Simulated scan of single mutants.
Amino acid sequence: MQSLELADLFRAPCKTCGAQLKFSAEKQKLACDHCGNTEDIGFTRNKLQENPLDFKVENRQLPNAPTEEKRIFACQNCGAKTTVNYDVPTLTCAFCGSKNVNPEAQKTRLIEPAGVLPFRLSKEQALQRFKTWVGDSWLAPSDLKAGAALDNLHGMYIPFWTFDAQAHSSWEGDAGFYYYVPVQVRDANGRTVTQQQQRVRWEYRNGRHQAFYDDMLEMASRKLTQQENHVQEASRYDLKEIVDYDPRILLGWEAEVYSIDLNESARKAEEQIQEREQSACASQLGGDTQRNLRVQTELSNQTFKHILLPLWICSYVYNGKLYRFLVNGQTGQIAGERPKSAWKIALLVLAFILLVLFFMYLGKK
Rank of each mutant, 00 (worst) to 15 (best):
L9Y: 10
K15I: 03
T16N: 07
K27P: 03
Q28A: 12
K29Y: 11
L30H: 12
A31G: 10
H34Y: 07
C35E: 13
T38A: 03
F43N: 03
Q49L: 12
E50D: 11
N51E: 14
K56E: 01
N59H: 07
P66N: 08
P66S: 06
E68H: 07
K81L: 15
T83I: 13
V88W: 14
T90L: 09
C93R: 07
C93G: 00
K99H: 15
N100T: 02
Q106A: 15
T108L: 15
I111T: 03
L117P: 09
S122Q: 05
E124Y: 08
Q125M: 12
L127N: 05
D136R: 05
S137P: 01
S142F: 11
D143N: 14
G147C: 06
H154N: 14
H154P: 07
M156Q: 11
P159T: 06
A167L: 04
S169T: 09
D187I: 01
A188D: 15
G190V: 05
R205N: 03
D215C: 05
M219V: 01
Q227G: 00
N229C: 00
S235W: 04
D238W: 01
E241G: 02
E241Y: 08
A255D: 01
D261W: 02
L262R: 02
A266V: 00
E270W: 06
E271I: 00
Q274F: 11
R276T: 00
A282R: 15
S283A: 14
G286Q: 06
R291M: 08
Q302I: 02
L308K: 02
L308R: 01
P310Y: 08
C314G: 13
V317F: 13
G320Q: 13
L326S: 13
G332D: 14
P339C: 06
K340L: 13
K344A: 06
L347G: 15
I353P: 12
I353C: 14
L357T: 08
